[in-house]
Design a protein around this nucleic acid. Structure first.
Lengths: 338, 338
DNA sequence: CTGAAAGCGCTTACAG
DNA sequence: CTGAAAGCGCTTACAG
């Protein structure tokens, strides 16, 4: 009753118009090679003239597969999240288009009413959707989790190598001549937070730099959380010459605090962030930071999910992707001046 | 062959297990009232025990409707866009969950290979997806366009009232005592850009403020585009005491330029942006700006699309949503000092 | 309140 | 290279 004018066409109508069987029509639609060229032409012609569109539900039912994956996105939050999610989605979108997968979106929290319509599930991080993962695993639905390593569960994970990235940041600062390198960590209940701290510690150790307890301050990724830590760090007798913040937001806040205390960046203090989020380039001082292959995470996740659905891959894949340091103007070589 | 272990259950298996007909099973699944309580219980029990999930493709085919809408998102770009899109999506996600609609995502550009799987289309703005709208209209697929008014086409549009918002900004500045109010416009090929300029002009006229050609400078929403305009404005003999930038990014850049020229904000110059994007709060000077009901646009768009699909609404709906000025610290009362 | 049966619009052995 | 026919897993008049 919705479109009273447009009579619903089916494959039989096309077959009749083209003077062939429905089987043949189906063959040309599905690009099966064994169709006489003249027949193919007539079918194509009929389809075009009649503006016929195959019914996808029928195709899926008959073919026994639905070619649809679900993308679960946590409740949106701050800017970091927003940038982060869109980048991830860009990769997911590109890859699913390429693999001809329908992408079903699930944004709100709460259970998913019809998870059934999906052959595989993609999780953009895991902020509040843990039960959904469990439910999916239990139902045997292939899952790929982006940017959150779940060692225990039999699900694939594709994430950025945060530990290595943090290590490289410290090495970079060391090469610029910094000795007193402090860090403001992210939330240590998150994998990301822990990994970035671990990388920092490993590199400090490796380079035999002073490892002082006072040099490790705790934030939660958010800008405000860096204020007091930054003040404490910059008030230290042996004030660090460089601070590695586990997020751009915290790095920007740290720079702000430095300015308030009359310090110059990078002259008196070098600062490195993490994320290469848009604030990094916009702030008072263009921020040296770590770029993450977010859209790459998205693309690879879709590919892995696709392979799992096809049964090409049986056991879960855990993959780490490399990051890159983006050198801007918030760091300074110190050894020249000494 | 994908899951060799899990035999595919169908409604007949459940019917047999529950000792009823498939019709009855279907009735309890679809919550049709006329089922004896004892039978309902047995069916529900069987479903739970067997972990049966109806096949959505079959349901859709048999019921003749697919309950799926598509969301078309333009190629992602800058931060503004990213924030903007996620907010929009949050609203869309909430509403489609509420209305039990499946949300199919289309991100990349290029044609959509199976637009057929969708009963209606949602467009998040229109940057490069114009042909898709045309195709949809031609195929009689209901469309709602978010944040882009298309007067000519028979499609619904839900957008923010940019003109009114700009007018209110100027009025606000006037009430603070400003007389010389300049603007840096957005890209004037976009509706948004034009509307914001029109609103500015209307309010200047309405308040009988000096309308000088030199006070209207042109940007393209992006931060860099505001640099030269800001310089020109601030270099004017009759330098404006307030600048209304058509985007937060440009407003932030304007403040930057002001600082470079030795001007203080808001003491020497008041600045207002637009978008209430996250940079607005993060910058050197917390920015007074215009908040837009983006997630509201998303929600209302889904509702309208739903009504159109159901045939409840025949003619396209064009709706404008109100904005709100967020007063932060980038504006100053001038009349006190005079 | 219930069920047998037709039908939704495709795909796919199978036989030719 | 082609087609008749069965089947995918549901829903829904219809008759009871």
């Amino acid at each position: 009753m919705p479109h009273p004018s447009s009579h619903k066409l089916n494959i039989a109508d096309v077959a009749k118009a083209a003077g062939v069987s429905t089987t043949t029509v189906s063959r040309v639609i599905n690009r099966i090679g064994t169709v006489k060229e003249s027949n193919r032409a007539r079918v194509l012609d009929a389809i075009r003239k009649m503006k016929y569109r195959p019914n996808p539900s029928a195709q899926r039912l008959a073919a026994g597969k639905n070619n649809t994956i679900g993308l679960v996105i946590p409740r949106f939050q701050d800017m970091f999240h927003s940038f982060y999610i869109t980048e991830l989605m860009r990769g997911v979108g590109t890859a699913s288009e390429r693999l001809k997968l329908d992408l079903l979106l699930h944004i709100t929290d709460g259970p998913w009413t019809n998870m059934q319509s999906v052959e595989g599930l993609l999780f953009a991080d895991l902020d509040g959707s843990e039960e959904l993962v469990d439910a999916a695993v239990e139902q045997g639905i292939p899952c790929v989790i982006m940017n959150h390593f779940l060692e225990e569960l039999p699900v694939s994970c594709v994430a950025v190598d945060n530990r290595k990235a943090a290590r490289e940041v410290v090495r970079y600062l060391a090469e610029l001549g910094h000795q007193e390198i402090a860090t403001i960590t992210g939330h240590l209940r998150t994998h990301v937070g822990i990994e970035r701290l671990d990388g920092y510690l490993a590199a400090i150790k490796e380079r035999k730099l002073p490892m002082k307890e006072a040099y490790v301050e705790h934030g939660d990724f958010g800008a405000p959380s860096a204020r007091e830590p930054a003040k404490r760090l910059l008030g230290l007798k042996d004030r660090p010459t460089a601070i590695f913040a586990a997020s751009d937001a915290m790095a920007v806040e740290t720079i702000e605090v430095a300015f308030e205390l009359g310090l110059r960046v990078p002259e008196d203090l070098s600062v490195v962030g993490f994320d290469d989020s848009p604030v990094a380039a916009f702030g008072r001082v263009p921020l040296t930071t770590v770029w993450q292959p977010l859209s790459g995470v998205g693309e690879q996740s879709v590919e892995i999910l696709h392979d799992q659905i096809d049964g090409k891959v049986k056991s879960p894949i855990k993959r780490l992707l490399p990051t890159q340091i983006i050198k801007r103007q918030s760091c300074r070589q110190t050894w020249l001046e000494r």
